[in-house]
């Protein structure tokens, strides 16, 4: 309940101050020149003079095309909003090993849970993790 209350506080308090992506893209003339940070936007189309990314349920055009960009890769960039609703890329980073990172994280996850479950088992009656008897671990 406390965590939920903190999240709600953040939601209502933060939402008032932040220039959200939806507000900016809905009225580009009013927000032209604003820098917006894109994190892990998925590239859906690469053209010579720009690229299309999918971000926050919107398809957005950004330009110029960063070197080494491929379709379906993830990219983070700082985009300056233009009055026509496109973004001029000021700074970017292509997340080349994003999938590998997730895969490696899954290995760690399996390792930790295996280690944990070798030592503990969940007792639903007492709603507690109980130590397994030694020798059976």
């Amino acid at each position: 309940m406390v965590i939920l209350a903190l999240c709600l506080y953040s939601y209502f308090n933060g939402a008032q101050k932040v220039r959200t992506f939806e507000r900016m893209i809905g009225n580009p003339q009013a927000y032209a020149g604003t820098i917006f940070p894109f994190s892990y936007a998925r590239v859906i189309e690469v053209q010579e003079n720009g690229l299309f990314v999918y971000y926050s349920r919107q398809q957005v055009k950004a330009f110029p095309t960063p070197q080494g960009t491929e379709v379906s890769c993830k990219i983070s960039f700082l985009g300056e909003l233009q009055s026509d609703g496109t973004f001029r890329i000021a700074e970017y980073h292509i997340h080349r090993d994003h999938t590998l990172k997730i895969f490696v994280s899954l290995i760690a996850l399996i390792f930790v849970f295996t280690l944990f479950l070798r030592r503990f088992k969940f007792d639903p009656h007492r709603f507690l993790f109980q130590e397994r008897p030694r020798g059976h671990a």
Partner: peptide, 22 residues
Amino acid sequence: DLLTHSLLPYFLFRLQKLRDVE
């Protein structure tokens, strides 16, 4: 990645022969 998150601290604490490493 989670392996980096866990490997180095795990190694450091293992050197200290920490119990309850899980």
